[in-house]
Design a protein around this nucleic acid. Sequence first.
RNA 1: UGACCUAUGGUGUAAUGGUAACACAUCUGGUUUUGGUCCAGUCGUUCUAGGUUCGAGUCCUGGUAGGUCAGCCA
Length: 647
Amino acid sequence: MIKITFPDKSVREFEKGISGLEIAKSISERLAQEVLSVGVNGEIYDLTRPINNDANVTLYKWDDAEGKHAFWHSSAHLMAETLEVIFPGVKLGIGPAIENGFYYDIELPEGKTISESNFAEIEQKMLDIAREKHQYIRSDISKTEALKFFTEKGDQYKIELITDLEDGTITLYKQNNFTDLCRGPHLPDTSPIKAVKLLNIAGAYWRGDEKRKQLTRVYGITFPKKKLLDEYLVLLEEAKKRDHRKIGKELELFTFSAKVGMGLPLWLPKGAMLRERLEQFLKKVQTKYGYLPVITPHIGQKELYVTSGHYEKYGKDSFQPITTPSENEEFLLKPMNCPHHCEIYNSKPHSYKDLPIRLAEFGTVYRYEQSGELHGLTRVRGFTQDDAHIFCRQDQLKEEFLKVIDIVLYIFNVLKFDKFTAQISLRDKENKAKYIGTDENWEKAENAIIEASAEKGLNTVVVHGEAAFYGPKLDFMVKDAIGRSWQLGTIQVDYNLPERFNLEYNGSDDQKHRPVMIHRAPFGSMERFVAVLIEHTAGKFPLWLTPEQAVVLPVSEKYNEYAKKVSDLLNNYDIRSLIDDRNEKVGKKIRDNELKRTPFLLIVGEKEVENNSISVRKQGEGDLGEMGIEEFSNYIKDLVKKELIEI
RNA sequence: UGACCUAUGGUGUAAUGGUAACACAUCUGGUUUUGGUCCAGUCGUUCUAGGUUCGAGUCCUGGUAGGUCAGCCA
């Protein structure tokens, strides 16, 4: 007998070799039907795999990530089998479960192509096979046997994977006529897979290596119930509606022009207004935190970036140097603001009493991103960072870091980005050549970030190998309303640039000391931030940000004059308003302006002229009734005040 | 950068290789409106350069731009 401990700490005894499925059955028949995989001492097992020792056991269902994982992993095998049936001779790469579904990397036989027109056939075939209830059978074989098997099958990618594996046993899973190299775990059989949707096709380099062959990646998702698939498809539709590229066009916020150049956004008046409000908002916060504004040019001598190290590291990713005609001097469009700021620091000597010095600039930078990676406003070639560099003493580092975290948290709070994670990116210790700077400084910087994050109680994820080449960083990733994750704010410690630019201050000991630098950008870039904000709010911006807070709708042209008076008065009160004096019925004006997501519609007709009032409609709430103009203005100001929680 | 996909008025869509259509928007006029699309007219288009064909929006090749994903992301 073995002792099985459940998550609630209760302990029960079972026969040695009992399976997760049998344990579930002993609890309830229903649980046995719903359970998908089982955690045994932290390792995920197939439900049918015997448990031979005392163990802590957790049963995972659809609602658990571990359960979904097994479900989708098994689905990937099912899809691979189907693809082998439909495209005989297809070669298989890897096929894991991912956050939403699964994919399989395949190489199609010579001359064959796969496209979305094949999806229906594949989906149907997958369902047919699933319905036949084939078991997923695990088997352990030796490396030699495994190599023999896949050599006979002609799957060169699997052979390569096996060759790289440790010697010893290799696990294979087989269902129906399909056998795959796989660590598992899997479902007991194919029958729970009741709904299948292939999502898209994309290229993917074999083993993520740009220099190697590109395989075709087929994405799909499956569900244990048809209803869940339908819900998921609705969610995808919602995502499309929130796409910032679509809303940006509809609301006339920004545009692109092939003539201007790809990846170079053009901010339209309404988008520019929105962006300026965001900038003013941050400037105000930064002033409170002691930041000093600076302004630097858009180009700098190539030598500047050679000094900073950026040229060596990112020279090929920059717009290539502009060469002056007679002197042959080389200038780069600036890809970073920090070297400029370092030179500002260097413009005069500093005492330890001056520090910290916080230099802030909304600095526009240009990076030659490769064409295929450009995406709406989230990846562009010219963008504006809400950049600042803090020059401080080592003993001030942690406190400064904490203050920056405060700013980021305040901003996220005001904008209701409540679902964010903080990612601490550290150096890959196995590959130190990728980074510049001494071991000692890296240690110091990494510890400062870890300690500051812990002190603020941030929910952090530590990732090794994701640091910038000059230092570790703390990135804030925000999930939008539909669950996609975006990196926005970033805070980075840098011991490298102070060295390279020979930054100094005079200490109390009358000796020269090296300051530490913190790079930080709470928004990240205005472009990406606005894109995420659009998707987060579906274009219904907070009142303080929205380009037009109110539109006055005269009932007929007789009241245009009064409408003008209302709008002027509101603008005097700093309420942003427009008039819709088109020759249309009020009903149409209301509809049109609601589609434009205007927060307040102010209807004026004979009654309102008489009472010197307006009839107010609020977005999402409808008619609020009649109000005086000043009353309305105070009402709005009050709402704005509530949105902008004081620091 | 690469694989794959896409490109039709300002916007969104339609058109077995055989007359490029519809809605919204624009503009003009009518209607004079208190609560969710008033009516009529008007305007304007097959991304670009070639090719196949009696005939190309449709097929082929190059270019450009957009998209999916990978890699990259200071």
